[in-house]
Simulated scan of single mutants.
Amino acid sequence: MSQLVWRKSSFSGGGNGNCVEVATGSDGLIRFRESDDPDVVAVTAPASLRAFLRGAKAGAFDHVTYKP
């Protein structure tokens, strides 16, 4: 696979804090990682990401809570 080019959101600011980075590989899959732990990478297909974002915008996950 070719070298990935990781991008941060313009909303991340200029610091080196916790930022989500995204890259698209030559295989067409989308990769996400957190800048402070770059060895952990989540991979998804574009169609799956679109479906997740549609659901999030529609409130499908509003009932989900995080309990550490």
Rank of each mutant, 00 (worst) to 15 (best):
R33S: 01
G55Q: 05
K8N: 09
T65A: 12
N18I: 04
V40P: 01
V20H: 00
S10V: 15
S10Q: 12
W6M: 11
P38L: 11
G14A: 11
C19M: 13
M1S: 10
A51S: 15
A47Y: 01
L53E: 04
T24R: 10
F32D: 00
G14V: 06
A23C: 08
S10H: 11
D39G: 10
V22G: 03
W6Q: 07
G25I: 07
A60Y: 02
T65D: 04
S10N: 14
E21L: 13
P46K: 05
P68I: 03
N16A: 15
V40E: 13
G17R: 10
K57Y: 00
L29C: 05
T44M: 12
L53F: 06
V40Y: 08
V22M: 14
F32P: 01
R7W: 02
K8E: 10
W6G: 06
K57N: 03
V22F: 01
V64C: 02
R7D: 05
L29F: 04
R33D: 01
F61R: 02
V41M: 05
T65Q: 10
G59T: 01
T65P: 03
L49H: 00
V20N: 03
G15A: 15
G59K: 00
W6K: 06
R31S: 14
N16I: 13
L4M: 13
G25S: 08
H63Y: 00
G55I: 02
D37Y: 01
G13Y: 08
P68C: 00
V41A: 07
G25N: 02
S35V: 00
V64I: 13
N18C: 07
S10A: 15
A23F: 07
A51L: 13
V5M: 11
L53C: 12
I30Y: 02
T65M: 04
T24C: 09
K8A: 13
L4I: 11
N16H: 15
S12N: 02
F52C: 03
F61I: 05
K57E: 10
C19V: 10
H63V: 08
N18V: 10
P68S: 09
G59D: 04
K57A: 09
K8F: 01
K8I: 11
S2H: 10
A42I: 15
D39N: 07
D27N: 14
S10C: 13
W6D: 09
P38A: 11
C19A: 14
G15R: 13
G17Y: 05
D62N: 07
H63N: 01
T44C: 13
R31N: 13
K67E: 10
G13N: 12
V64T: 02
A56Q: 07
G13Q: 11
R31L: 08
A45L: 10
A23N: 07
S9Q: 08
V43K: 12
Y66T: 12
L29Y: 04
L49I: 06
F61D: 00
L29K: 08
M1R: 09
G55W: 07
D37W: 03
R33W: 00
F52Y: 10
M1Q: 05
N18A: 12
S26L: 06
P68N: 03
D39E: 13
H63Q: 04
R50H: 03
G17D: 12
A45Y: 04
P38T: 11
